[in-house]
């Protein structure tokens, strides 16, 4: 596991975006070789998306040969509702870049057969050759995607009933009216994300500090589903100082001491990307 600690949200976002940029460049995507990504929604990844858009506009990267799979979507919310994850992805990312609609995949929370929709999503990931890099965020209770506390750590894409905490947290997006907040969602499972070659988790803000502590300093526990990634061979947690508040000084010092190594991962124009 890598733990990347940056000063603040903006720096964490930029670091994550640069990491993604370099991953795409090093992969050398092409018509027969798509780079596959898992993508989150929410306020945490916004800064990272903004940076990626900037890189695209500067001509540093293209998403022409990138396939994306989103983590989750509400059930029963109209697709063009401003709070749907379709709207989020369109407004905050897709409309600004050169990705093709056919290469983006978001679960359809209005499908007639929700279970079939989930299975089809898993099949599409498999057909695309699995996911190279799954980017995720977490909730203050340590949930990844909508894998609420208590979710099976080997779960697959499925229908989930949201935890009360999540519904309350989301009410602010629905005029503060709890009755308007969707209570169910389709979400990839912890196991789905675990299958990715690499996982990057963004965690920023003091309110996520306890979740980060549970994720990396305590044992694997289905009540903090993000802790499952302790078992993943390639996980990178990107956080800001605030998110480290509950960590041991020793942990923070150790990983900060390695930043000079980790920062090499985000240097502009990775050498071997240029060579080929």
């Amino acid at each position: 596991m890598k733990l990347i600690i940056l000063d603040d949200y903006d720096q964490a976002s930029e670091w994550a975006a640069k990491y993604i940029r370099n991953k795409i460049l090093l992969f050398h995507p092409g018509p027969d070789r798509y780079f596959t990504m898992g993508l989150p929604t929410g306020s945490t990844p916004l800064g990272c998306y903004k940076k990626l858009i900037e890189f695209y506009k500067n001509g540093e990267i293209s998403f022409q040969y990138v396939k994306t799979f989103n983590m989750d979507e509400y059930v029963g919310l109209p697709r063009d509702h401003p709070e749907s994850y379709h709207s989020f992805m369109w407004n905050n990312f897709f409309k600004h870049i050169d990705i093709k609609a056919e290469n983006t995949h978001i679960l359809d929370g209005n499908a007639a057969d929700l279970q079939a929709e989930c299975q089809a999503f898993e099949d599409k990931i498999t057909a695309a050759g699995g996911i190279e890099l799954f980017v995720g965020g977490i909730g203050p209770d340590g949930h990844i995607a909508f894998n609420e506390p208590g979710s099976s750590l080997v779960s697959r894409t499925r229908v989930k009933t949201l935890a009360k905490d999540t519904i309350i947290a989301n009410a602010r997006f629905f005029d503060g009216d709890l009755s308007k907040v969707p209570t169910m969602a389709l979400t990839v499972g912890v196991g789905t994300v675990m299958d990715a070659k690499e996982v990057m988790i963004l965690i920023t803000g003091a309110h996520k500090a306890f979740a980060l502590y549970k994720a990396i300093e305590e044992g694997v526990n289905h009540m903090w589903t993000v802790s499952a990634f302790q078992q993943h061979p390639q996980t990178v947690f990107v956080c800001d100082e605030d998110a480290t508040l509950e960590l041991r000084v020793k942990t923070v010092k150790y990983f900060k001491g390695m930043m000079y190594v980790h920062n090499k991962l985000v240097e502009t124009h990775p050498l071997d990307a240029k060579k080929n």
Binding site: R79, D80, H86, S87, W90, N91, F94, K95, K100, A101, E102
Partner: peptide, 12 residues
Amino acid sequence: NPEKLFFDEQGY
């Protein structure tokens, strides 16, 4: 509406 074009028609 480009959002509908994108998601409904996968057009550009």
